[in-house]
Design a protein around this nucleic acid. Sequence first.
RNA 1: GGGGUUGUAGUUCAGCUGGUUAGAACGCCUGCCUGUCACGCAGGAGGUCGCGAGUUCGAAUCUCGUCAACCCCGCCA
Length: 594
Amino acid sequence: MADIKRTHNCGALRIGNDGATVTLKGWVDSRRDHGGLIFVDLRDREGIIQVVLNPEIGQIAHQHARDIRSEYVIEVTGKVSVRPDGTVNDNLPTGKIEVYVDELLVLNRSKTVPFPLDGSEDISEAMRLKYRYLDLRRSEMQKKIAGRAKLVSIIRSFLDSNGFLDIETPMLTKSTPEGARDYLVPSRVAPGKFYALPQSPQLFKQLLMISGFDRYYQIAKCFRDEDLRADRQPEFTQVDMEMSFMSSDEIIEIMEELFVLVFKEVKGVDIPRPFPRIKWHDAMLRYGKDAPDTRFGLLISDVCDLANQAEFNVFKGVLKNGGVVRGLAAPGITGYSRKDMDNLTEEAKIHGAKGLAWVKIMEDGAYNSPITKFFPDGVLDKIKERLGAKDGDTMLFLADSEDVVCAGLAHIRLHLAGKQGLIDDSKFDFVWVTDPPAFEYKPEDKRYVAIHHPFTTITKETREHLETDPTKTLTDAYDIVLNGTEVGGGSIRIHERELQDKVFRALGIDEDEAREKFGFLLEALEYGAPPHGGIAIGLDRLAMILTGSESIRDVIAFPKTQKAFDLMVDAPSDVSPIQLRDLYLKPTIKPKKD
RNA sequence: GGGGUUGUAGUUCAGCUGGUUAGAACGCCUGCCUGUCACGCAGGAGGUCGCGAGUUCGAAUCUCGUCAACCCCGCCA
């Protein structure tokens, strides 16, 4: 077989190449056979170019071209020529030229592909995942995967030039309490014992700081065995970073620099600095969640005091039981029918709310609601003022536990913003969410759990509560939120042994357990651990937003389904009894009969 | 673990209130065609209606179960 070198990429040719003899290699995007002339659109990573097979120019090539089909891999050699008048295709960047083929070689044939690769139809995701290598051949996916690669490249060069060292940490490591469920790997040489795949390189990067590497980063795979969502995969990638002798302000600053650079280079967008910051408690109050979408208003307000003045048992009862009443002013829905309001109520119920109270303010300022009768004169006016509502708005209220109210109103807020077209898709709104509480009480487990992770330092001002009321403690932590999606988070870590002990104690981890699970860290803290902190960026989520994708699956070459199956390789799968025996494992669940 | 949407030709879908032989577009196959680029023209093949029960004289259609994909709650940073 003649082994001629490729001279150009298909999509790279332009009118300046006129007259050149080129050799191209790529896939047959389409073939238009006119009996005499045959036109082939030849495609590679860079794009598409039309090649022309004319029996008068290359008779044998023309013969071969009659047998080629879509997705055949071919090599053509021929001359680049300006297209004749009236045959220019403005839809193609290469549309002013074409290649007259002298020689054509079929490098490989292709079966008819199971779905069109031209983006003309929305193919089911199951089909795309089964034939992922074909799905990835589509230009849309090529762009997304290439966009991700560019993002990684920008991040790497930024961090490299800022003194960060790329250091790898183990994949086979130790299961730790707290956090997500671990993926476990059985040990062959230690019967009955298991490694865990890392949920993140958290402890290792802290140890690297203790080793004195000062600045570390890693594009790190992380594993969490929890149920999936559009923005959650069982294995995902973090840009993991850690820095010594840096305050949270300094870390935030360098991260802003990185994000600004990324958006400039990838999107050509200038993001103004400094990014806004909001305290965690304020985010929860005003947006109902710790990852606020700040591209639009519809802010939430607390109206407990005013709601308590109404003779409305739903509100009174909730407030008596320690719950809250909060609301927001929604524009443009006074025309909603009873049924529309019921549908809106259903949205609130998704997050556990029992009902949704509403008061329409008509254009003339009159209140229209089933519950106006419970409010003494003037109270609704005060509520209207508190919510910043205008005539024509509808005030929506939830009354329940704080968790339910926050989650419900956050959902309503997003739902309405989407429906009313309040979200500007071209916007990129960053916000730092800072100072979250360290602990959350889990009534079902009757214990405190760490909101971030148990190595996050407690702010000096709130340390006094650590042993009395841990929920009152705040952490020196910061999440970076982009358009309502958390794309990263970090904190200043604990570098003092005594504080770490206290935090473990607050979490109900006794000394023995702490020594068993984290002994290496506790000991390391006693050998000159420097003050340090860091952050991890969710690379998949960032790539998702930068490429305008609906799901992180679109920016992961080989993702898993919602059940964590790989439809292409068919994993997870059975293993042989011998493999199990080597690992001293015995399945406890019998496979289902087919 | 739970709620919702979907599942019909290779693909994307239509198929009403159960009724004779389940359709369309694209794709595929054969032939014709020297300026197409969503090529065109003529002809053709292609179906276990996700799977399993049930109701019925009769099920793509109704009921129950089950499997899968997606969205969400719980879970998860």
